[in-house]
Amino acid sequence: MAQAATAPSARNYLQELLPRLVLAPSFAAVLIFVYGFILFTGYLSFTDSKMLPSFGWVGLENYSKLWALPHWWRALGNLGIFGSLYIIICSVLGLGLAILLDQKIRAEGVLRPIYLYPMALSFIVTGTAWKWFLDPGIGLEHTMHQWGWESFSFTWIKDRNFAIYTVVIAAVWQSSGFVMAMFLAGLRGVDNEIIKAAQMDGASNLTIYRRIIIPMMRPVFLSAFVVLAHLAIKAYDLVVALTGGGPGQATELPATFMYSYTFTRNSMGIGAASATIMLIMIASVIVPYLYSELSTGRKS
């Protein structure tokens, strides 16, 4: 009973409605601009919209066209590669750094902010920095040649088969510090008495981490997965700044696909269909997670 229930006052009926009136504009905005718009876009995906929204019903035609497009499959395949590497590397790196940083490190106050600052940057800035640093003409390869390592070659960003991995590099750089912070918070929440008990049982540090602490990080892994998966599906700016989706379509993702079909290729129906599929992907990650979070939260 956390509520300060509204008391009916003969004097002032409005006072009782006031809280709901205050909430109403925000709620209305969310209903219209989020849920209403989702319905609208969902509807457009069943129409013959081209350059402008149009309301001629075409059923599932856009979806069948979409799934027949190699370009879309390319975007999905890239998302698969990018998403899984991004999630795995960020989690492993984040957990590793958090464990190292949790060893009573003197310089923690200096190191932690260094690992985390990329999260404050725009993906456009990150993309710009890595774009030129990975550019064979002036970046890393060029530098190595200058240093005398003539045979050094690193041309992934220009290579159709490897460009998607440069997106992974830049994205991991940006997000892994944040995952580290999540794990560090989790590690700090581990009851030290459990560790002491394990030490008395004669467990080595490696065993303590492998058998006790890391399994206790399960909820953090889950949160990290949800956050990273949802960032991966939304990823747009980084690709635009880093590779522009190229070379060719080598780094197209669903987000860049949606944008180009909707706004530059005048196939709004197909764009809307791809956006709807992106929403479904994110919802299938977020909704079960929030559902379990909210229901356990209510129990406690």
Partner: peptide
């Protein structure tokens, strides 16, 4: 839930 939607879904409207 509105925090997590991909904004692509609202661009057109």
């Amino acid at each position: 839930l509105s925090c997590f939607i991909p904004f692509q879904i609202v661009l057109i409207p």
